[in-house]
């Protein structure tokens, strides 16, 4: 039997000498509320960036324990596998309705919905407009890449004029397919919507601006001001048929000229 005052023998008994000039500080890594798993998104997809920015915002605001996210249908359908806080799933386009229910039952929670353009601007247009019109105190993160990603690259309502997709092989014809939908400008007239901003993720500077916008949207909800929404212009290199670097250039040169980046409405 070992005596109680006897210290257990360990391998590294000697203290290591630490040279102060060699000490390295980790200044950037994965946020704590993001799981350490590999994401299923294509190379250069904007979804992974927006996932990370939401996690960083939640960590910085210290609201991880009371945050409830609502995942959409679309490419980000299994976002709950990547976020390490409470997330639920909603039927296609009904994410704001589910978020409304959660927020009304648990008003102390921070509720946000994460949606793509097929989810928010096509099948869920009624839900998003009425949620904003009621002035529900939730936050919506809208990732706009201009195509239906999960189903194979068909035309979305937000597809630009002349853009080639699987269902518009000669480019979007405005006479046949109608005009691209500017959701934020449409919602700016609603008195219930308090904070609306459009940003992009095509360069590090724009990513940082997106993070500030997401943080302000969450702060709007924490301050009980009302409905807040951030539209993020994201890349879809696979269905735009170009490399990730060219996709980033396309957002800068083409997409952001039609969808102007900036604050659309602020309290």
């Amino acid at each position: 039997m070992r005596k109680s005052n006897q210290k257990p023998v360990t391998r590294n008994q000697k203290k290591k000498k630490i040279n102060k000039s060699q000490v390295e500080n980790l200044i950037f890594s994965r946020p704590r509320s993001m799981r350490d798993v590999e994401m299923h998104y294509c190379a250069g997809c904007g979804h992974g960036l927006v996932h990370r920015l939401i996690c960083e915002t939640i960590d910085e605001l210290g609201i991880r324990e009371r945050t409830i996210g609502v995942a959409p249908v679309g490419c980000a359908v299994i976002a709950y596998d990547y976020w390490d806080f409470d997330v639920t799933e909603a039927a296609h386009g009904r994410t704001p309705a589910v978020a409304t229910g959660i927020k009304r039952v648990r008003p102390e929670s921070i509720v946000f919905s994460y949606q793509g353009d097929g989810d928010l601007a096509a099948i869920g247009t009624a839900e998003i407009i009425h949620t904003a019109n009621r002035g529900e105190n939730i936050t919506v993160i809208f990732v706009n890449n201009g195509v239906y990603g999960m189903t194979g690259g068909q035309m979305a309502p937000t597809t630009l004029a002349g853009q080639v997709t699987d269902t518009t092989v000669e480019g979007r014809n405005l006479k046949r397919d109608g005009y691209p939908l500017k959701i934020l400008e449409m919602m700016a007239v609603l008195p219930g919507a308090k904070y609306l901003e459009r940003t992009s993720v095509h360069s590090p500077q724009e990513v940082l601006r997106t993070k500030r916008a997401i943080k302000k949207a969450f702060q709007t909800q924490i301050d009980n001001r009302g409905f807040s929404m951030v539209e993020v212009l994201a890349m879809c290199p696979t269905y735009w048929g170009m490399s990730p670097i060219k996709s980033a250039d396309r957002i800068k040169n083409e997409v952001s000229t039609f969808y102007p980046i900036g604050v659309v409405k602020s309290y």
Binding site: L26, I27, F28, R30, E38, M39, Y41, A43, G46, R52
Partner: peptide, 8 residues
């Protein structure tokens, strides 16, 4: 986009 770079 995949958050795989650490900066020291």
């Amino acid at each position: 986009p995949d958050c795989i770079i650490q900066v020291y």
